[in-house]
Design a protein around this nucleic acid. Structure first.
Lengths: 238, 238
DNA sequence: TCAATACTTTTTCTCGAGATTTTTAAAAAC
DNA sequence: GTTTTTAAAAATCTCGAGAAAAAGTATTGA
């Protein structure tokens, strides 16, 4: 955390000013979206061509991705995409519920009028994207606005460390969430969940808001959990 | 979490297998111990000689240190040691109290006989180091054993993410704690605190243990907080 | 047929040099 | 005297090639 530096916290980040950063973002995107499979070996000599940078530059980008726990490296055996598992997602979920509910509680306490305005705006933009999402396959815009909605919810929380950890966990969860939304194993009205959450926050009802948020996050886990294992393993190839 | 890879979680880490890792550890040590001052610019061309590696290798080590939030980088303007401030330490303290108390609670619930044994052993080694520390200036051994004691306390907590975040926060806190221990502004019997903590944990009294742990962590913050600002600024030069 | 050894191929790790960009300093203009 | 422009210096960023290690393959021996 510390600042909005090269690696994390690039919510409103400007253009990439360096090739390392371009490669970092492209790689991150490909890992989160699953184009680079979990556990897959990341051979520098091969990847440098794909991403159009030199070997050293790519190595640096991969080192940066270790911050986000999206890449792991061991000794003299190169880099790999961080593996995934249901146990890991459960851990992510529980930790995130704990941290995000606490952050939301603080945010509701500390948030001022400007925060309320931002929240309303973020919810509105998300709702619009939900409508559009029904038919089209444009998941990116919805993902982006969903992230911003959750970010704004806890924006008034004064703890930068809490928010830093949450941004990592959110990113991790996104890898799994993509499965859940795509396959929709458990019927749910995400829009309604978001609306109830927003209203409870606006009403400064911290208990209610955190209860909704906790369920909201846990439901996504249960959703992934209920996916048949063979269907899951297609994506979660170790 | 993720794994015990290049960057974090190297509690029982073997020899560095690569030059990047050597440089990473040396740099981390120098930052935590304050040889590289907070906010200081880290010029690659200059540092590569100090650490005896090439420019690319040093850059990679610095990128790795961003994971630990000990180094920050911005755009095209190189690397800097992460700055410090009392506000940041307060945030670190509060976040750490929250996470570490939760982890301890889980650890006390889940810990088995082997855990009790490890805890007893870690406490004993720490106590021995405390005795020796009185006269000598050998802070390193005590720091190491103190870290292991806290690590063992929460070792039985099943959440790898919680432990991952705590290892980062512990490392951050160490930067500040070194001031507190050196100057000793508030008289305290750290040995007694540790002993009470250990006994409460062994007695499986989670409420008592977390209360002691919380105070233990907060006291270090107050200790640093009470250091006169001019004395502090000698070290915390931005 | 299986295991161990030696060899080849691949990949990682490392370094130094060149191209951009930022920073610093000096000179010129207002 | 202050600001702007211009030029020099320093630092960052980037790349490709060479050394070390790991992985894979073939050969040899039981």
């Amino acid at each position: 955390m510390a600042n909005n530096s090269t690696s994390n916290g690039d919510s409103l980040m400007s253009e990439p000013k360096t090739l390392v950063e371009s490669a970092y973002r492209a790689l991150r995107r490909d890992i989160i979206e699953g184009h680079l499979a979990p556990g897959e070996k990341l051979r520098v000599e091969h990847l440098k061509d794909d991403y159009g940078v030199g070997a050293g530059t790519l190595r640096e980008a991969l080192s940066l991705l270790i911050s986000d726990a999206l890449v792991v490296s061991q000794g003299q055996r190169g880099f790999r995409v961080a593996p995934v598992s249901l146990e890991d997602f459960e851990d992510i979920t529980q930790t995130r519920v704990m941290l995000e509910c606490e952050a939301l509680r603080q945010s509701i306490t500390m948030g001022d009028d400007a925060w309320e305005g931002d929240l309303l705006a973020a919810f509105h933009r998300l709702a619009k994207a939900e409508e559009k999402r029904i038919g089209t396959d444009d998941r990116e815009e919805w993902e982006e606005r969903n992230r911003i909605f959750h970010e704004v919810l806890i924006a008034a929380c004064p703890s930068r460390w809490l928010k830093h950890f949450l941004s990592i966990l959110y990113q991790q969860a996104e890898r799994y969430r993509r499965l859940s939304l795509y396959l929709q194993p458990i019927p749910r009205d995400i829009h309604a969940e978001h609306e109830a959450l927003m209203q409870a926050a606006m009403a400064r009802d911290a208990d209610k808001a955190t209860a909704i948020l906790g369920e909201h996050i846990r439901l996504t886990f249960r959703s992934v959990q209920s996916i048949p294992k063979d269907q899951l393993n297609e994506k979660l190839a170790a």
